[in-house]
Design a binder for these strands. Structure first.
Length: 260
DNA sequence: ATGACATATGAGATATGA
């Protein structure tokens, strides 16, 4: 099963690139973030024409997440549990079944958190604790679970071209990285790093500004976290870097894993 | 360098991003 995550920075503005990549990479399941539209404005017809079912948790202007799947989407849950007052569309989960293999998949858009310190950073850290609680509960089922999305976390210095530039940033603060490690300590495996333990220069985001792409000034912030039952099946993890060089690209590129 | 770029909203300038 090929499971991808991609922050598309508006699914409508970058629809052509998304469709082109789907045809090229042929993922089975795609977790989208920052779709930046409400459910009724989501271009479901275009995705259905390529054979994908859609589960959408949209929001006007900001945020918004979705899951595309060649398999039926079951038991869809919208919104991250733990705070009824949180109305930001940053989380959707569904179960996909490939023959005898059911996988619980989540598409998450973790808050940026800047500026830090401040209320936005507090929200980010609280959101990460809610994600941890969700993972704890879901992992009790002892089934394959794949938490994918834009984590807005640079896990280690080698995940940035210029880590010194990020020392005071909410994506790289020690407290942020510690919260990410707390997730891993539950028994979740970060797929790309697990398969490429020594790799440097692997990024998933390049800013639009200041020629970041041309200078390869990137960061790796889009991740898949796998439960033990999913990690047992992990066969590959790829960053589709070339997509950043396309016409009118998102500032993030797709990251895809393969489960056998 | 509280900017650069890019997106959405809405019709100019502002909020957000990472």
């Amino acid at each position: 099963m090929r499971i991808a995550t991609w922050n598309v920075n508006s699914v409508k503005a970058h629809l052509e690139a998304v469709l082109a990549w789907l045809k090229e990479a042929k993922p089975d399941v795609v977790c989208l973030q920052e779709i930046k539209c409400e459910d009724q404005a989501f271009p479901a017809f275009e995705f259905e024409a390529l054979g994908y079912a859609c589960a959408i948790h949209g929001q006007k202007t900001y945020n918004g997440v979705a899951i595309l799947s060649r398999f039926a989407l079951e038991d869809v849950v919208k919104g991250l549990p733990g705070d009824p007052a949180d109305d930001q569309a940053r989380f959707i989960a569904a179960t996909v079944v490939d023959g005898s293999l059911p996988v619980r998949v989540a598409s998450l858009y973790l808050p940026n958190g800047n500026p830090a310190p401040g209320p936005k950073y507090d929200y980010k850290l609280a959101w990460m604790q809610r994600l941890k609680a969700f993972a704890v509960e879901t992992m009790k089922l002892e089934e394959p679970l794949v938490l994918c999305g834009d984590y807005n976390v640079i896990p280690e210095a080698r995940d940035a071209r210029f880590p010194e530039n990020w020392c005071n940033d909410a994506l790289f603060l020690p407290q942020t990285r510690a919260a990410f490690r707390e997730l891993e300590s539950l028994g979740l495996t970060e797929a790309y790093r697990a398969l490429h333990p020594l790799k440097t220069g692997a990024y998933s985001f390049w800013d639009y500004q200041a020629g970041a792409w041309q200078k390869d000034n990137g960061i790796r912030i889009d991740h898949h976290l796998l439960s033990p039952q999913a990690a047992d099946r992990l066969a590959a993890a790829e960053i589709h870097k070339h997509v950043r060089g396309w016409e009118k690209p998102s500032d993030h590129v797709p990251v895809m894993i393969i489960l056998k």
